[in-house]
Design a protein around this nucleic acid. Structure first.
Lengths: 229, 229
DNA sequence: TGAAAATATGACAAATACGTGACATCGATG
DNA sequence: CATCGATGTCACGTATTTGTCATATTTTCA
């Protein structure tokens, strides 16, 4: 659930600000640029997950920038949404021909922006077809989002599910609490390291007697998932 | 009256968009893919009523994809219309030999496209190729567009019907609200994610006590249709 | 053996997610 | 134009989840 980065390119600071606030509330990371040159540089530098380009800008216009980005290997795949003040049909076709993935006319509601942005990102990110993992009768299936012990379902909370999924795909290796926080909780959260202990506890409880031994404490270090004792 | 689903396959987003708009105005549900691989997957997954394939695409070409689809049991009956930029006779023959049902050369008017698409669908659809699905006495029959519980009809709204149909043809798998919006509402609509909850609620209500357990909440993720608890 | 250190466990309050009923809107129908 | 059904949103209640603490328990090692 790592939050995506969006680069906003608009020469109007007030517009940028409005968009930035909307996106931040929707839990996106936001970058800003006020002209095509720096936008181009930032695109290469930070590799945002999506770009919002204002159509009309002094100097190089948004659509021109879109064309350039689409021509370059490094940025060709980057989703682009064009923003424009006028709702002319021609513009729309032009914009989509330039390689933009969507096209929003001002004025728009923050909610609409976020919704369409989500849609574009969703399309751009093909759902990974993950395989089920099974160890000693304990099976975790990402497709059905289920954990079963020899066929019967186990009750398990969301965090415990993610924790178990991480462990089952990274067996036989000890992880520190800090590493687990990074991997399972996602990098930029501030959570006490001891919290990991609590979730390990909950996970063990969910797994029941039969599978508890798979989650092992590595004293002085952290935890490990392993078939061996 | 149930609107048909058309899968548009073209690497050019602008072309896809243009076609999509035309079809949506003609009340078709639209799916899009920008390459043969994902198109193939979507064809299997969503069973569109018709596919529009661009002849020329990077990687696997449209005609090659058409051949493959015709070879596979699951997709052999699916009507295909090929799109091409050049009006060469050879291509046309090749295309029809590959199993395409029609062949349209760019540029074409939206009206022409819709007209020929209708014609193909009319020919190809001896009312209802779709099979009824039945689970624990709950039966959904696309032919009569009816849902019955042990024979007696259930009252169910249009959206709930589509939702149930999707679920019954995609059992044992958890879907996020976002995915459901894509699949059931159709790609580029702008609807709140929580709206899915409301329709799930309505669907459950329609299903009644007896079948409610089939629609399961996957906390922190979304919903799932499954026989198992 | 007896601290000291590290981990396990139970309990909570706050934050989230989900369920549910109500309501406004919109298009079809009469 | 009034009515009805379908739909998308909201607001609010309820249930679950989560991060922290305080308090056991276990392990380590002088």
């Amino acid at each position: 659930m790592s939050s995506k980065t969006v680069l906003i390119v608009d020469d109007e600071p007030s517009i940028r600000e409005m968009i930035a606030v909307a996106l931040e509330m929707a839990d996106y990371r936001v970058l800003e640029a006020d002209n095509a040159q720096s936008a181009h540089a930032m695109a290469l530098d930070h590799k945002p997950d999506l770009m919002l380009l204002d159509w009309m800008m002094p100097g190089t216009s948004g659509i021109e920038l879109a064309r350039r980005l689409k021509r370059e290997e490094a940025t060709a795949e980057m989703p682009i949404i064009l923003l424009t003040a006028k709702g002319e049909e021609d513009n729309k076709v032009q914009g989509l021909e330039a390689g933009a993935d969507d096209y929003i006319t001002k004025p728009f509601s923050p909610r609409e922006l976020v919704a369409r942005l989500k849609a574009v990102l969703r399309r751009a990110t093909p759902p990974g077809i993950e395989e089920a993992v099974e160890v000693e009768g304990l099976k975790l299936d990402p497709a059905s989002h289920r954990v079963t012990s020899h066929g019967s379902a186990l009750e398990i909370g969301p965090t415990e599910y993610r924790l178990l999924q991480f462990f089952m795909t990274h067996q036989e290796r000890a992880y520190t609490r800090s590493q687990l926080l990074d991997q399972v909780w996602g990098g930029n959260v501030y959570v006490e390291e001891r919290t990991v202990d609590v979730h390990i506890r909950r996970l063990r409880k969910s797994l029941g007697e039969k599978h508890q031994h798979l989650i092992q404490t590595v004293r002085g270090t952290g935890y490990r998932f392993s078939i061996r004792e």
